[in-house]
């Protein structure tokens, strides 16, 4: 039997992220930006490996690169639509990751860990970062929810009332990028993507209200996470792969 105490910190780190990411995913889906769930994690992975290559802090490298991408997206908004921007970020992140791992032997293991996930190695620092990051993201989303919905449904409404829109858009882009980078460090690229994509998608299909949709997305994300964590431990299988398959199963049953 596995030593469950050993897995308490990783379990709670992932659980906190499994509550926050589906809520963030709902707003990304609202804005037609679900591709962000792949692009920012790839950029964060590239930043992390780039920092290793340069002898800098991997955590700060990943967060800084993702934050820059989030801010850069807003600067490029006049020339590139959101989905094109995310596609280019995805390509740039993946290419940089492959190039760094090909040229820096020590980066190869970290590269695999970033894509497959390194949740079992999460400690107090990772748990605290996840809690602080999630509280910040959920509070910000709660505060800005009406304005984000209005921006999507009636793009001119706020501007015609003299409200400046770009600070909200910039803050959302940067916060989303940082949250996805933080999650990537523990859960890995694909588990992060699955939490941002699957639960909101199912909730959008099933629920009749925005509030209900958010609630169901968070419930499904955390439920799938708890089940996957337990199954992966009991069957001694990699968490990310079990989690991915479980979410596919959830999708087939609920959609």
């Amino acid at each position: 039997m596995p030593d469950f105490e050993l897995f308490l910190l990783p379990f709670f780190t992932g659980l906190v992220l499994a509550l926050m990411l589906p809520a963030l995913g709902a707003y990304l889906r609202l804005r037609n930006e679900w591709l962000a769930a792949l692009s920012y994690p790839h950029v964060a992975a590239a930043g992390t490996l780039g920092a290793v290559f340069l002898g800098l802090s991997p955590l700060l490298g990943g967060l800084a690169m993702a934050g820059l991408a989030g801010a850069g997206k807003r600067l490029l908004a006049r020339r590139l639509s959101g989905d094109v921007c995310h596609a280019l970020f995805l390509l740039a992140g993946w290419s940089t990751t492959v190039l760094v791992t090909a040229n820096q032997p020590t980066a190869e293991r970290l590269g695999h860990a970033l894509f497959d996930g390194q949740l079992y190695f999460a400690g107090v620092v990772e748990l605290l970062s996840a809690v602080l990051g999630s509280v910040l993201v959920l509070s910000a989303l709660r505060f800005a929810s009406s304005r984000l919905l209005l921006l999507r449904l009636y793009p001119d409404f706020s501007r015609l009332r003299g409200l400046t829109v770009w600070p909200l858009e910039l803050a959302f882009d940067v916060l989303a990028a940082l949250a996805l980078a933080l999650a990537t460090m523990s859960l890995g690229v694909m588990a992060t993507f699955s939490l941002v994509f699957v639960p909101p998608w199912l909730a959008f299909r099933r629920m009749g209200t925005w509030r209900g949709g958010l609630g169901l997305a968070m419930l499904l994300g955390s439920l799938a996470y708890v089940l996957a964590f337990a199954l992966a431990l009991l069957l001694d299988q990699p968490f990310g792969a079990v989690f991915g398959l479980l979410q596919v199963l959830f999708s087939l049953i609920i959609a």
């Binding site: 609202l30 009406s146 919905l149 009636y154 409404f157 959008f204 209200t209 925005w210 509030r211």
Partner: peptide, 18 residues
């Protein structure tokens, strides 16, 4: 038309927004 297709949003929530 506001892009509400595919969104879990009720009429009451829409009116509250504006």
């Amino acid at each position: 038309v506001p892009p509400v297709v595919g969104l879990p949003l009720s009429g009451r929530e829409l009116l509250a927004l504006t």
